[in-house]
Design a protein around this nucleic acid. Sequence first.
DNA 1: GTATTTGCAAAGTTTTTGCACGTGG
DNA 2: CCACGTGCAAAAACTTTGCAAATAC
Lengths: 141, 141
Amino acid sequence: MGDGDWQERLRAGGHRLTPQRELVLAAIEKLEHATPDEVYAEVRTRSDAINLSTVYRTLELLDDLGLIRHAHLTDRAPTYHSATGHEHSHLVCRGCHATISVGRSAMEKALGELAAGHGFRPDYGHLSVFGLCAECAAAAE
Amino acid sequence: MGDGDWQERLRAGGHRLTPQRELVLAAIEKLEHATPDEVYAEVRTRSDAINLSTVYRTLELLDDLGLIRHAHLTDRAPTYHSATGHEHSHLVCRGCHATISVGRSAMEKALGELAAGHGFRPDYGHLSVFGLCAECAAAAE
DNA sequence: GTATTTGCAAAGTTTTTGCACGTGG
DNA sequence: CCACGTGCAAAAACTTTGCAAATAC
């Protein structure tokens, strides 16, 4: 996805290009993974010109437009991340909350056949595999 | 997991065997997949002797003990299910919310190598892969 | 100019917590 | 008995909504 493409995507849907939308998108790009609250906090450090409601509304819009994606890395609060970088899945440790990113191609190679057998097309960018990392698994024994 | 084993599991952790815990467990077994609210509603049809707080507390306890598990089939509200049946993962369609169950062994065969390469032990019973089923994928084209 | 977007405040939903009473072992 | 568990009500955490004012185009 090209730079500045987000501006066209907004316009294509009849949406307007506002500072708030630009700030939220920039925050997501910077934070990589963030809850709505964290996005709000990040934007606030740069400007007062935003409200938490707007963050929610903007995240929803950007998600609909495919400019960002969200996954559930914890049991509560969705985590948003950029869709402009390469698509990736997450391995999330229940013990220490470490998250390991796995490139789309590796995950697709693993899951593709199984999914295809069910006629299913996985959304790899949304996928979180919960479990235990090596250290926490060892500690749990 | 044997029948009545749940009673021993409770006791082993120094927990007591209460009617509420039995009711919640029975509701999960019956409903197969249920949010805390749904569990509460089901239990209420059988008895007034429970409170929503207790449902939350009990679900958490049973989950800790491994008697039930929870997954995130929708963006909101965790869904609990029995851990006494065979462990399975879910393919969840974003379009029509259909859920396809995939046995643990099939999923493990697909993901095992990738996960092991990261020293990661997936919790297959918790895994939900979001995406589009065949029909919704076709409709989206 | 005007339709969209925002800020604000209020309400909605879901989940957690404190504490006195009840109860299983 | 008495430590653990429950009910109740209140609070906390998170998200959505209505409406008037502001603003992108």
